[in-house]
Design a binder for these strands. Sequence first.
DNA 1: TATGAATGAGGGTTCATTCAT
DNA 2: AATGAATGAACCCTCATTCAT
Lengths: 194, 194, 194, 194
Amino acid sequence: MSKPREEKYQAILDAATEAFAEYGYFTCQVSKIAKLAGVADGTIYLYFKNKEDILVSLFSDRMGNFIQEIRQSIVKCQTTQERLFCIIRTHFKYMEENRSLAIVTQIELRQSDPKIREAISGPLREYFHLIEQVLTEGVEKQEIILADVKVGRQMFFGTLDAAISDWVSSKKPRPLEGIEELVFELMRGAFKIK
Amino acid sequence: MSKPREEKYQAILDAATEAFAEYGYFTCQVSKIAKLAGVADGTIYLYFKNKEDILVSLFSDRMGNFIQEIRQSIVKCQTTQERLFCIIRTHFKYMEENRSLAIVTQIELRQSDPKIREAISGPLREYFHLIEQVLTEGVEKQEIILADVKVGRQMFFGTLDAAISDWVSSKKPRPLEGIEELVFELMRGAFKIK
Amino acid sequence: MSKPREEKYQAILDAATEAFAEYGYFTCQVSKIAKLAGVADGTIYLYFKNKEDILVSLFSDRMGNFIQEIRQSIVKCQTTQERLFCIIRTHFKYMEENRSLAIVTQIELRQSDPKIREAISGPLREYFHLIEQVLTEGVEKQEIILADVKVGRQMFFGTLDAAISDWVSSKKPRPLEGIEELVFELMRGAFKIK
Amino acid sequence: MSKPREEKYQAILDAATEAFAEYGYFTCQVSKIAKLAGVADGTIYLYFKNKEDILVSLFSDRMGNFIQEIRQSIVKCQTTQERLFCIIRTHFKYMEENRSLAIVTQIELRQSDPKIREAISGPLREYFHLIEQVLTEGVEKQEIILADVKVGRQMFFGTLDAAISDWVSSKKPRPLEGIEELVFELMRGAFKIK
DNA sequence: TATGAATGAGGGTTCATTCAT
DNA sequence: AATGAATGAACCCTCATTCAT
């Protein structure tokens, strides 16, 4: 992909993220994205097959980035404890820096349209898998105590997700940064980290 | 409200729950709800102001029920520990018995349209408040240890929510009943319940 | 089909015939048909699947009528000579009374879109078949001399078609009625009718 | 017009003939013609004013050729009989060798858009005129008997046109060459050629 | 001259809502 | 109260045409 093409592609995704965050996928017209991206309506369709493809691309592109960042953040960690804390911090940091993406994630993660769901579920499942890997390794190394890895992941992810849900829906949210420690403290107790 | 009127009102809400669960709010046409409810399209508008009103009513009616059931389930409980377990069990039981409602909750809880969000948030906030009350009381009675009640509630609700999210999106889910103990065990650790 | 439904169906087909005749299938907007029929745009779609379906229905309905009329006109004829003359007269008469249909036939008979062609070709083929039947019978009864029935039909139909083509494209056409005898005289010579 | 310019002009017309034949004027996108001609979309507009101009040019250029060829083929003919046979043979031969042009002629000859019709009708009218000249001369020289020259032309042209219509729409057509004699035999009878 | 990315007007179709019966 | 045919506003997408390079 050539430089200017890639730039415009990203510009449209950026615009879509903002627009979807503000209006939601269905309520948001393609023309709104175009205007926000500073291109003509038709230009959108030079880069994306249709409206749905914008959403799907948005997820695979942005969530892909997110997961990669999470992954990078834990390579240097020595212990499960560190890894879990790293994920919490990176997750919060990323979402805090990408508020619109956070909103879109919150809103559209649970689309009903089966086609969209399927397309979207990929990156999310990858994230779930990553968390479960960390937990499994922790159990094996006896760094944490956990009867069921899947339920453990549900708690871990569910907690972060609920925190972000509160954060995006609040007009004056306290910074997510401020609750990293609190969240981690709960996880420490739940996973019986020494 | 007269008897037959109430009956048809509920029939439409039932139909809407099914239809929204299957197609999602936006993708689902009002005519589909009407057909499912066994009434004419126009009849819908004798009971609801518009499509949005169906969704909002669905939430306040069904979520209202849900919260009432939760409330009833914990009145007999003596300890915070018992209360938390009761909520988990009742939450899971209710959703398991009302799969479509569970799906709608998952899908539409996070609507983007501000009007819808606002309308929906009422019952949910009530539930959040209930959980926080239980946690606050637990802290006061020193039955649990918790640095921040809001974060505690985020973890508690987020975990249940994530579990149900997995459950509704799985073709062959293990029964929620089966993970009550697992979830509670994690909560016990997190809240340092003796 | 109930009475008013049938009436509106025909009204839309009438409007479509006028509109297609004036603007051509592609250039004519559905909204133009709707306005001409005195209905809302959306109403069209209660009676027809889509724009293409209007054209196809127009042909099967109107051409069906036409062929039926041709068929009826020749039942009383005794000889091939009479039958051929009857077809000429009825063909001209029908088209003269349904100028817009004549135009549409001229214009759209030869659509390129394969789907449309196929749908349209049915009634036309039926007409061709009818003509060929008459010619075949004539040959068998030795009322006409004709080396190849298909070519005979091509001449017969082609002549009528070209005459109508001139007629519809002329601002001040001489009535088709006036050339019945002339056309028949040519056919008589071509088919060596005694 | 310079040499390479003329070449590209013809290449575009060739491509347009193919493309219009396959998809029809309206269904065929300009970009398809460009791709087929091996030029960029924008290049088309260096040679033609717009899409319509391509069609019009196609007709005046190709039909001009056609008529010229017809004209040349009859100069050496001595009798009306020979001339008519020559036209039939040349007409069929030309169309057989230019199948796409034959299709376009069939399809687009009867465009509805008045502007297009007008532009197209020129070459066609010229052909009609040529045929009528031959017929008129034949009548004057008493080589044929014909009450109305215009109707005679309608029959003559209509027959050829219908034959070609069958030929282009048939998957496995018998060669037009094979029906020259058959068609001429019918004309001979119609025109009472001795 | 040639390119092809960008434009944006336009139209077919859907569907929430109304209203005559 | 109930119906469901009719409405028409709204929107996604296409594609002829332009223009900066």
